[in-house]
Write a protein that binds this DNA or RNA. Structure first.
Length: 421
RNA sequence: GUGGGCGUAGCUCAGCUGGUAGAGCACAAGGUUGUGGCCCUUGUGGUCGCGGGUUCAAGCCCCGUCGCUCACCCCA
């Protein structure tokens, strides 16, 4: 049997690429409008970076990373998410030194060894942004409004922005204790996973789908926020309202990575399969210090490109069409046409042709399929007359062009047409 | 890691209670045509995922295996 692609990875074929380019270009333009610059960081890092940032006891680190020994014995991991690498670069290049707020975006593949499923692959693509250096709530609003605008520019509807606050070091401990106290009484009726989470990560119990609905009366983090956190959260709320960005508060919203603090959010799609979070993120005020940098607050989000594309109406994305399709019949015609095609292409005109010995009927079919604006036909009759036939594929008008200076005639015609459009 | 569904032509799929394979689209040739589209005729193309077993006979039944897919878990 022939060799196949690795389980859980996907080829993005030419027929699908338009949607990818659309989403990448839209994001680039928008992020730059908001003053963000692109950063490209490696797709692998020392394993320790991810263990320290994401959290050693999270599922991602415990059982989903692609980790291997480098030839010198050091542990290397293919990045399972983007924030860790960007923060590492932020520290390594001392980006805090020359700008108070580093505003960065990135796009590229991430790797997690999970069981593949709709909207979940082992190599998947994320577009993410990070704003590091300032903890003002207006930074949160900038990030959230940018996320919101990205999806409206992509004309993706039916999404809900959910926000929550996880508090900070000053108040989360008290909440955790209160929650454990509460869960203790419920322990016997919880699913096996939640009984385990009670010890490892009690906040996640609230996010459980099996036990959903059992915690109506559970204490929520929002009630335990310390004054600074409360003020921060309310400012974010008010800011979103003043920008007319719709959102809902989801007090049960918990994130799977340990580094999040204060503002967290998810963009959730309705009426989709199980993987219904298309973008998510939050504040991570302790992360930079955790990795060994100076205390610098940060906030960011990442969106799943495959998931976003699944929501786009890809039929409306225009695909490039040749201005001219050349049908040459026989070797003599082929020889004449070769330099013509080259010259047109060199001067920036998209030209396609067919090199097979197929009949004119068949070649015309290909021309039609390509969506070309014009078709140039050179067969035996045309050779004898010293003229080629140029057909407008829409109006079906035909005209004869002298073979002697055909390149000039075509160039004039086609570039005039391009300008009109 | 756990569970369900599915693997037949390049694509989408039929295939009865077991009798050594079909359609549509696509592709190619021809006819018609105002040199292409619509229509008509013909043609190319399949180790029925792979390996065992039962049987006179397996695409179909049984066992194993690989792959895809959906869901749980987790996450973007």
């Amino acid at each position: 049997m022939s060799i196949q692609a690795i389980k859980g990875v996907k080829d993005i074929l030419p027929g699908d690429i338009a949607a990818w380019q659309r989403i990448e270009e839209t994001a680039r333009r928008l992020f730059e409008d908001f003053g963000f610059s692109e950063i490209r960081v490696p797709i692998f890092e020392y394993t320790d970076l991810f263990a320290r940032s994401i959290g050693a006891s999270t599922d991602i680190v415990e059982k989903e990373m692609y980790t291997f020994d480098d030839r010198d014995g050091k542990k290397i991991t293919l990045r399972p998410e983007g924030t860790a690498g960007v923060v590492r670069a932020f520290i390594e290049h001392k980006m805090y030194a020359d700008m108070p707020l580093a505003k960065l975006y990135y796009m590229g593949p991430m790797f997690r060894h999970e069981r593949p499923q709709k909207g979940r692959y082992r190599q998947f693509y994320q577009i993410g942004v990070e704003a590091i250096g300032v903890d003002h709530p207006h930074v949160d609003i900038e990030i959230l409004s940018m996320l919101y605008t990205l999806f409206s520019r992509l004309k993706i509807e039916g999404l809900t922005l959910q926000i929550n606050s996880l508090g900070d070091g000053a108040c989360r401990g008290a909440y955790r204790d209160a929650l454990k106290q509460y869960l203790k009484t419920k322990l016997p009726v919880l699913c096996g996973d939640c009984q385990r989470r009670y010890e490892t990560n009690p906040l996640r119990v609230l996010d459980c789908k099996v036990d959903a609905g059992k915690f109506e009366d559970a204490p929520v983090m929002l009630d335990y926020l310390c004054e600074p956190c409360k003020k921060h959260f309310h400012t974010v709320e008010d800011g979103l309202k003043s920008l007319n960005i719709p959102f809902v508060i989801n007090a049960r919203l918990v994130r799977g990575l340990d580094y999040y603090t204060r503002t967290t959010f998810e963009l959730v799609m309705e009426h989709t399969g199980a993987q219904n979070t298309v973008a998510a993120g939050g504040r991570y005020d302790g992360l930079v210090q955790e990795i060994g940098g100076p205390a610098s607050p940060g906030i960011g989000f990442a969106l799943g490109v495959e998931r976003a594309i699944s929501l786009m109406d890809t039929r409306t994305i225009p695909v490039p069409r040749p201005a001219l399709f050349v049908c040459a019949l026989g070797p003599e015609a082929g020889a004449i046409v070769l330099p013509v095609i080259y010259q047109l292409r060199s001067s920036g005109i998209m030209v396609e042709t067919d090199y097979t010995d197929a009949s004119l009927k068949s070649k015309m079919k290909k021309a039609d399929k390509s969506g070309a604006g014009y078709t140039l036909i050179i067969g035996e009759q045309e050779m004898e007359k010293g003229k080629a036939v140029l057909r407008n594929m829409q109006t079906k008008e035909q005209k004869e062009l002298p073979l002697a200076h055909i390149e000039l005639a075509l160039q004039d015609l086609l570039s005039a047409r391009n300008q009109k459009e």
